[in-house]
Design a protein around this nucleic acid. Structure first.
Lengths: 178, 178
DNA sequence: CTCAGAGCTGCGAAATCCGCAAACATGAGC
DNA sequence: GCTCATGTTTGCGGATTTCGCAGCTCTGAG
C-alpha cells in the first residue's frame, strides 16, 4: 500500500474507524489492524526497543496511546517483540526444512508438530507438500531423531522430505518498510 | 554479588574464556559467543523489551555490562530486536515458499534473491532443492509476478516449485529456552 | 437523550537508560 | 616477575522513558 511519510492524518480517530471497516474481512481469528497500528508495527520492526514517545511522534499519537496499542497488540498475539538470531551462530548446528504429506486431518498433524520444541515454524501449504516445518537441532543425531522417530511416527504422516540447511542467506522482518 | 539461578558460574570471566576457546570453530564470519551472551539472548528472546537491569540480575552482570553486550551483539549483527507478526494479519495476503534448482553458482542466485524486497528468507539447502526462499506478497498478481517474472528470470535458475501458504501454525523465536 | 464502552491525552512518580571515569583481568613483550 | 595495552565490568548521576490514573471525546445502543 502506499504509505506516506507517516500517518499524520491518522491522528484523527475517524480515519481509524473508516479504514477498519473498509478492510474488515470478518476474519474469525484476527481483529484487523488500522493504519496507525500498522505504522506502529513498522516502527517496531525497525527497532523493537524504540521508545513509545518516538513512535508516537512518528505515527501522530501520544506516548500513552502508543503504549496502550502496543500492549494490546502483544496481548492479542498479533505481534511479539523478540530477539532473533541466526541459530547457527547460537550453537544450533543443524537445521532443516521438512516437507510433509498427510493423509487425513492435516491440521491435527500440524498441531502435533507445533507441540515439539525443536519445531520452529509450521505452515500449511498448497502444492506438493501439505505441511512445511522448520526444525532446529543441536547436531545430526538430534535432527535425525526428530525427523525419523518423532515426525514420521505421527499418525497421518504419509511421507516426508528433508532439506538440510547449509547456509542462511537472508532473514528479514521488515514488511511494510519497503 | 554472585548468586542467581542462571549462569552464576559465568560471572567468572575465566569461564567465558574457556567456553569460547572450547567451541571456537574458527568461523570466519561470527565472533563466537560465550555463555553469558547466550543467556542474555535467551532473555531477549522471551521479551525483547526486558530492562537491562532485569537481564543483569538473571545472568549475573551489572546493568551497564548487559547494556554494552547487547549493543555489541546488535552492532555485530549477531542478533536483532524486532517486532514479528504473522504477515497474513498485517495485510500481506499471499505468501509462498519457493524451492529452486540452480545450475552453476548457487550463491550468486541466492544473492540476487536476497536483493528482492519481497523475499523474506533465503537459505541454501542440501536435498532436492538448492535454495529455499520465502516470498511475502500483497496479492496473487504480485506473487505471480515475483515468481514467474523475477525469480525464474534469474540466470542460473533451472526450475522452481512453489508452496503457497494456507495457514501459519507456529512461529517461535525461543531456541535455548527449551 | 442518556448511558456504557473504547480510545486518546496529559501529568506526576517511579523505573530505566545512557555516558563516563575508575577498577579489574588478561595477554604480550621484555 | 613487571609493565603496558586492551577489553570488560562496575558504580554513579542526570536525562529519558515507562507506568498508572483521571478526565475528555466520540460512537453506538437502547
Amino acid at each position: 500500500m502506499h504509505s506516506e511519510p507517516v500517518a499524520s492524518r491518522s491522528a484523527d480517530p475517524r480515519d481509524t474507524k473508516d479504514s477498519r471497516e473498509s478492510r474488515n474481512g470478518s476474519r474469525n481469528s484476527t481483529p484487523q489492524l488500522d493504519s496507525v497500528s500498522l505504522a506502529i508495527i513498522e516502527q517496531l520492526q525497525e527497532d523493537g526497543r524504540r521508545p513509545y514517545a518516538a513512535i508516537g511522534k512518528a505515527v501522530g499519537l501520544s506516548e500513552a496511546a502508543v503504549r496502550q496499542r502496543v500492549q494490546k497488540l502483544l496481548d492479542q498475539g498479533v505481534m511479539q517483540i523478540v530477539a532473533v538470531t541466526d541459530p547457527l551462530t547460537v550453537g544450533f548446528r543443524r537445521q532443516a526444512m521438512v516437507g510433509i504429506n498427510v493423509e487425513g486431518d492435516t491440521e491435527s498433524v500440524a498441531d502435533a508438530l507445533t507441540d515439539m520444541s525443536e519445531v520452529e515454524y509450521v505452515v500449511m501449504t498448497a502444492g506438493s507438500f501439505d505441511l512445511l516445518a522448520e526444525i532446529v537441532c543441536e547436531d545430526d543425531d538430534h535432527l535425525l531423531d526428530v525427523i525419523n522417530k518423532r515426525i514420521r511416527a505421527l499418525s497421518g504422516v504419509r511421507s516426508t522430505e528433508s532439506f538440510v540447511y547449509l547456509k542462511l542467506k537472508k532473514q528479514t522482518y521488515m514488511w511494510g518498510t519497503r
